[in-house]
């Protein structure tokens, strides 16, 4: 589903964020991307969402080489990926419903279908009764769940999350992770960047550890070797 082959990323300021990263994530797999801040976690996710492009190496998403996606095809490419952010990136001038509906409106669905899917997504994150609320009136944890509902509303094959629990207390963090697990149960491929090792230890999923732009440890390879 996601495949990195010897990927390097050097920013214009000369900082080498990734140096020779290779791994692959199978369809339906759920993995955590861990490592200290500045290790390149965010850069790796940005390469998947085509927010950045690799300096060297190949990034394949859905068997599609991202280097072959021209600028004007990026929107269509992103429509098949759900992205969850640490700061939610909700639109505060519109309702919860409209926020979750955004990718569906972009996708050109019929209003009835949009309503159905938005409510299904809100139901999955347990906030069905908040559809008419303004996001600003919700707690941080609830806002993050709205962000997740938006990411999954268009039923993407892949969901990537960058520090989705960064601002949450341990209890809420676990709740969010359980939510991701439920999506994984229905076949969604997930890659979640987090530095919350304690939380990751609680959950039994594959772990990719990035240190200084390189994969320092991959729990899958470790178990395969054992």
């Amino acid at each position: 589903m996601i495949r990195f082959e010897n990927v390097h990323k050097r920013y214009p300021n000369g900082r080498e964020a990734l140096s020779g990263v290779s791994f692959s994530l199978e369809r339906g797999e759920m993995a955590f991307l861990t490592g200290p801040s500045g290790a390149g976690k965010s850069t790796l996710l940005k390469l998947i969402a085509l927010i950045e492009r690799p300096t060297r190496g190949t990034v394949l998403v859905n068997n599609l080489n991202t280097a072959r996606v021209p600028r004007r095809r990026i929107p269509r490419f992103r429509q098949r990926i759900g992205v969850v952010f640490q700061d939610h990136k909700l639109l505060y001038d519109r309702s919860v419903f409209d926020n979750v509906a955004l990718p569906l409106v972009i996708g050109g669905l019929k209003p009835r279908e949009i309503g159905r899917r938005v409510r299904a997504a809100l139901d999955q994150v347990g906030l069905l009764d908040r559809e008419t609320h303004a996001p600003i009136t919700l707690s941080t944890g609830e806002q993050q769940r709205i962000g997740i509902a938006r990411a999954v509303a268009s039923r993407p094959d892949v969901v990537i999350a960058d520090e989705p629990t960064g601002n949450l207390d341990p209890e809420l963090s676990l709740e969010i992770m359980r939510l991701f697990e439920r999506f994984n149960d229905v076949g969604v491929t997930l890659l979640i960047a987090t530095h919350d090792l304690e939380l990751v230890d609680h959950l039994n999923h594959r772990r990719l550890k990035l240190v200084a732009g390189q994969i320092a440890a991959d729990s899958k390879q470790a178990s395969d070797a054992a």
Binding site: F77, R78, Q79, R80, V83, D93, L102, P103, I106
Partner: peptide, 16 residues
């Protein structure tokens, strides 16, 4: 600009 950025992130085309 924040709204435009979010729209681009969730796959909004230039026309949209």
């Amino acid at each position: 600009s924040t709204e435009i950025e979010v729209m681009k992130l969730v796959g909004g085309t230039d026309g949209f």
